[in-house]
C-alpha cells in the first residue's frame, strides 16, 4: 500500500507498511497512556469489557477501545481496496483461541500490553513474557512445518 523501500533479501516483506502501521499502534498506545493513564493491552481490555476481569479501565472505556479496533481496520481495508487474507480452519482457530485466552490471562498480557507497552518501558516482566511467547510461537510454527501441518490455505 505504501511505496518506499523493500528488502531485497525478503521480497515478500512490507517494511514500510509495517513501520507506519507500528507507528500508528505506538500512537494509539501513547494516547491511552498519556490520555487515560492506562496500558493499551488488548487481552486485558477484552477481559475487562466482557466482565471476565474486574480490574482496569471502566467497562465503557474498554468497549470503546475494542469497538475501535475493527473500525480502524475497516478504514484501512477500505482505503487499500479490500483485504482477503487466509485464515486457519475452525479447529485450528478454536484450539489457538483457547490457548491465547488462557495464556494471556495467566501471563497478564499479550503482544500489545507486554510486547509494545511493557518492552518500551523496559519492564522486566514484559521483556521475559515477550521473549517467551516469541520463542513459543517460533517453536510451534517450526514443529507444525516439520510435521507437515498446513494451517493456512
Amino acid at each position: 500500500m505504501i511505496a518506499g523501500f523493500t528488502l531485497s533479501a525478503f521480497p515478500d516483506a512490507a517494511p514500510m507498511n509495517g513501520l507506519f502501521g507500528g507507528i500508528l499502534i505506538g500512537l494509539a498506545a501513547a494516547l491511552m497512556l498519556l490520555g487515560a493513564g492506562r496500558i493499551a493491552g488488548v487481552s486485558g481490555i477484552a477481559a475487562r469489557a466482557t466482565g471476565i476481569s474486574d480490574s482496569g479501565m471502566s467497562k465503557s472505556s474498554a468497549w470503546m477501545f475494542l469497538i475501535g479496533l475493527p473500525v480502524g481496520a475497516a478504514i484501512v481495508a477500505f482505503a487499500s481496496g479490500g483485504m482477503e487474507p487466509s485464515f486457519a480452519s475452525p479447529v485450528f482457530l478454536i484450539v489457538a483461541g483457547l490457548l491465547v485466552g488462557v495464556g494471556t490471562r495467566l501471563g497478564s498480557g499479550c503482544t500489545s500490553g507486554h510486547g509494545v507497552c511493557g518492552v518500551s518501558r523496559l519492564s522486566q516482566r514484559s521483556i521475559v513474557a515477550t521473549l517467551t511467547f516469541m520463542a513459543a510461537g517460533i517453536a510451534t510454527v517450526a514443529l507444525m512445518n516439520a510435521a507437515g501441518l498446513e494451517v493456512l490455505p
Binding site: 507500528g22 500512537l27 494509539a28 477501545f65 475501535g68 480502524g72 478504514i75
Partner: peptide
Amino acid sequence: SGSLFGAG
C-alpha cells in the same frame, strides 16, 4: 486509541 490501533 482503539481505532488508531486497529488501523495500525
